[in-house]
Amino acid sequence: MAEKRKSLIKIKPKKYKDGEVVKVDFMVMHPMDTGMGKDKKTKEIIPAKYINSVKFNYNGKEITNMTVWESLSVNPVFTTNMKINGAGKLTVTFTDNTGEVHETSTKIKPKG
Protein backbone atom coordinates (compact mmCIF):
# COMPACT_ATOMS: atom_id res chain seq x y z
CA MET A 1 0.00 0.00 0.00
CA ALA A 2 1.40 3.33 -0.99
CA GLU A 3 -0.24 6.66 -0.28
CA LYS A 4 -3.98 6.82 0.20
CA ARG A 5 -5.73 7.37 -3.10
CA LYS A 6 -8.86 9.41 -3.37
CA SER A 7 -11.60 7.42 -5.03
CA LEU A 8 -15.36 7.48 -5.31
CA ILE A 9 -18.14 4.99 -6.08
CA LYS A 10 -21.47 6.41 -7.23
CA ILE A 11 -24.68 4.45 -7.71
CA LYS A 12 -27.30 6.00 -10.01
CA PRO A 13 -30.11 6.56 -9.34
CA LYS A 14 -29.48 7.20 -5.65
CA LYS A 15 -32.68 5.41 -4.64
CA TYR A 16 -33.28 2.00 -6.17
CA LYS A 17 -35.29 -1.15 -5.64
CA ASP A 18 -34.33 -4.79 -5.47
CA GLY A 19 -34.06 -6.22 -8.97
CA GLU A 20 -33.39 -2.83 -10.53
CA VAL A 21 -30.43 -2.39 -12.88
CA VAL A 22 -28.41 0.63 -11.70
CA LYS A 23 -25.37 2.45 -13.05
CA VAL A 24 -22.14 2.18 -11.11
CA ASP A 25 -19.44 4.79 -11.54
CA PHE A 26 -16.01 4.26 -10.06
CA MET A 27 -13.42 7.01 -10.27
CA VAL A 28 -9.98 7.33 -8.77
CA MET A 29 -7.20 9.87 -8.71
CA HIS A 30 -4.32 8.20 -10.49
CA PRO A 31 -1.60 9.59 -12.81
CA MET A 32 -1.96 6.78 -15.42
CA ASP A 33 1.61 7.40 -16.59
CA THR A 34 2.30 5.46 -19.77
CA GLY A 35 6.03 5.11 -19.17
CA MET A 36 6.79 7.07 -22.31
CA GLY A 37 6.38 10.58 -20.97
CA LYS A 38 9.23 12.81 -19.92
CA ASP A 39 9.35 15.11 -16.94
CA LYS A 40 9.22 18.62 -18.34
CA LYS A 41 11.89 19.94 -16.02
CA THR A 42 14.32 17.07 -15.52
CA LYS A 43 13.80 15.62 -19.04
CA GLU A 44 13.85 12.19 -17.47
CA ILE A 45 11.37 9.51 -18.45
CA ILE A 46 8.51 9.18 -15.99
CA PRO A 47 8.26 5.46 -15.19
CA ALA A 48 5.05 3.68 -16.11
CA LYS A 49 2.45 3.89 -13.37
CA TYR A 50 -1.03 2.95 -14.40
CA ILE A 51 -3.97 1.02 -13.03
CA ASN A 52 -3.85 -2.46 -14.59
CA SER A 53 -6.75 -4.20 -12.88
CA VAL A 54 -10.14 -3.24 -11.48
CA LYS A 55 -12.55 -5.70 -9.89
CA PHE A 56 -16.13 -5.16 -8.74
CA ASN A 57 -17.32 -7.51 -6.01
CA TYR A 58 -20.95 -7.48 -4.85
CA ASN A 59 -21.74 -9.47 -1.72
CA GLY A 60 -18.81 -11.81 -2.23
CA LYS A 61 -19.40 -12.40 -5.91
CA GLU A 62 -17.16 -10.93 -8.58
CA ILE A 63 -19.54 -9.30 -11.08
CA THR A 64 -17.05 -7.44 -13.28
CA ASN A 65 -13.30 -7.51 -13.71
CA MET A 66 -11.23 -5.35 -15.97
CA THR A 67 -7.75 -5.55 -17.39
CA VAL A 68 -6.63 -1.98 -17.85
CA TRP A 69 -3.90 -0.69 -20.18
CA GLU A 70 -2.05 2.58 -20.25
CA SER A 71 -4.36 4.44 -22.65
CA LEU A 72 -6.97 5.38 -20.07
CA SER A 73 -7.11 9.06 -19.11
CA VAL A 74 -5.52 10.48 -15.98
CA ASN A 75 -7.92 10.18 -13.00
CA PRO A 76 -9.89 7.49 -14.82
CA VAL A 77 -13.62 6.82 -14.61
CA PHE A 78 -15.15 3.35 -15.06
CA THR A 79 -18.90 3.02 -15.60
CA THR A 80 -20.84 -0.24 -15.77
CA ASN A 81 -24.23 -1.54 -14.73
CA MET A 82 -25.22 -3.86 -11.93
CA LYS A 83 -28.42 -5.64 -11.05
CA ILE A 84 -29.45 -5.02 -7.44
CA ASN A 85 -29.84 -8.35 -5.69
CA GLY A 86 -30.29 -7.72 -1.99
CA ALA A 87 -28.70 -5.40 0.57
CA GLY A 88 -24.99 -5.61 1.19
CA LYS A 89 -21.76 -4.17 -0.05
CA LEU A 90 -20.11 -3.35 -3.37
CA THR A 91 -16.33 -3.46 -3.15
CA VAL A 92 -13.99 -2.19 -5.84
CA THR A 93 -10.41 -3.45 -5.74
CA PHE A 94 -7.80 -1.98 -8.03
CA THR A 95 -4.10 -2.53 -8.53
CA ASP A 96 -1.48 -0.71 -10.54
CA ASN A 97 1.62 -1.93 -12.33
CA THR A 98 3.88 -0.79 -9.49
CA GLY A 99 2.09 -3.10 -7.08
CA GLU A 100 -0.21 -0.64 -5.36
CA VAL A 101 -3.39 -2.35 -4.18
CA HIS A 102 -6.44 -0.45 -3.00
CA GLU A 103 -9.94 -1.29 -1.97
CA THR A 104 -12.97 0.90 -1.58
CA SER A 105 -16.57 0.01 -0.95
CA THR A 106 -20.08 1.34 -0.68
CA LYS A 107 -23.23 0.02 0.99
CA ILE A 108 -26.03 -1.28 -1.16
CA LYS A 109 -29.42 -0.53 0.36
CA PRO A 110 -32.38 -1.23 -1.93
CA LYS A 111 -35.74 0.28 -0.93
CA GLY A 112 -38.76 -1.91 -1.57
Binding site: K6, L8, K10, K12, D25, M27
Partner: peptide, 12 residues
Amino acid sequence: LENNPADMMIAN
Protein backbone atom coordinates in the same frame (compact mmCIF):
# COMPACT_ATOMS: atom_id res chain seq x y z
CA LEU B 1 -20.22 16.41 -15.88
CA GLU B 2 -22.08 13.55 -14.21
CA ASN B 3 -18.75 11.90 -13.56
CA ASN B 4 -16.53 14.84 -12.88
CA PRO B 5 -13.20 13.71 -11.42
CA ALA B 6 -13.24 16.96 -9.45
CA ASP B 7 -15.93 15.41 -7.25
CA MET B 8 -13.05 13.61 -5.54
CA MET B 9 -11.20 16.87 -4.99
CA ILE B 10 -14.35 18.48 -3.62
CA ALA B 11 -14.67 15.58 -1.16
CA ASN B 12 -11.09 16.23 -0.10
